[in-house]
Simulated assay, not measured.
Amino acid sequence: MEEVLVEKKKLVDREKKFEKRVKSVEAENSSLLKKVEADQAEIDIMKVRITELEEEKARRDEQNEYCKRKNKELEAFNARKEHEM
């Protein structure tokens, strides 16, 4: 009978250790989940910013292309004027 009580006490102690470990792991998991949510929010913000920057780049590329065409037109115009002179 005494052996059974000793074994029971060991099992109870072991169960308490497991419960503490489970609580610790659950707390760590909760912390990691919060970090993942925060990181995901930051990723979403960065995706929006990337989209904005890509749109800005496309707009500037269009402006640069327009300026190049205008510059070529002006160079042709100047070349014609110089030729006429």
Rank of each mutant, 00 (worst) to 15 (best):
E55C: 04
L32R: 03
N71Y: 09
A76C: 02
E54Q: 05
I50K: 00
K68L: 11
K17R: 08
I45P: 08
K8T: 12
A76D: 09
R49V: 08
M46G: 03
A76N: 06
N64F: 14
E54N: 04
C67K: 13
E28G: 07
E73S: 03
N64W: 11
K8L: 14
E37D: 13
E42R: 06
Y66V: 14
T51S: 05
E56S: 00
K72L: 09
V25S: 05
V48Q: 04
E15F: 13
Q63K: 10
D44F: 03
K8Q: 11
A76Y: 04
K34Q: 15
M46Q: 09
F18L: 15
V25M: 12
T51P: 05
E52P: 02
N71W: 11
E52K: 01
K8S: 06
K68Y: 04
V12A: 04
E65N: 12
C67T: 15
N64C: 10
E55L: 04
N71V: 10
V36K: 09
A38Y: 04
E15R: 00
K8C: 02
K23V: 02
D61Q: 09
K70L: 09
K35V: 11
K70A: 07
K72T: 01
E75L: 08
L11N: 08
A38Q: 12
E52Y: 05
R21S: 11
D39I: 13
E19F: 02
R49G: 01
Q40D: 08
S31M: 13
K47V: 05
L11M: 03
S24W: 12
I43A: 08
Y66F: 15
E37K: 10
M46V: 03
I50R: 03
V22C: 10
D44W: 01
I43M: 02
D44C: 07
K47G: 00
Q40M: 09
V12D: 08
T51L: 06
L32T: 13
S30T: 14
R69H: 09
R69G: 04
T51V: 03
K57V: 08
K70T: 08
E65D: 10
K8E: 12
I43L: 07
S30P: 01
E52M: 00
K23S: 13
E7R: 08
Q63Y: 08
V22F: 14
E55D: 11
E7S: 09
K70R: 09
R59A: 13
N29S: 15
N64E: 14
E52W: 07
L74G: 03
Y66H: 13
R14G: 13
Q63A: 15
S30E: 13
K70D: 00
S31P: 07
L33K: 13
E19Y: 00
K20V: 08
D61P: 03
R60T: 15
E26F: 07
N71C: 11
E28R: 14
R60P: 01
K16P: 03
T51H: 01
A27K: 14
R49S: 02
N29D: 14
V36G: 02
K35C: 00
R14Y: 09
A27Q: 15
E19H: 07
A38D: 15
K47P: 08
V36N: 04
N71M: 12
I43R: 06
E28Y: 09
E42K: 05
E19D: 10
D44L: 05
V48G: 02
A76R: 03
K35G: 00
L32N: 09
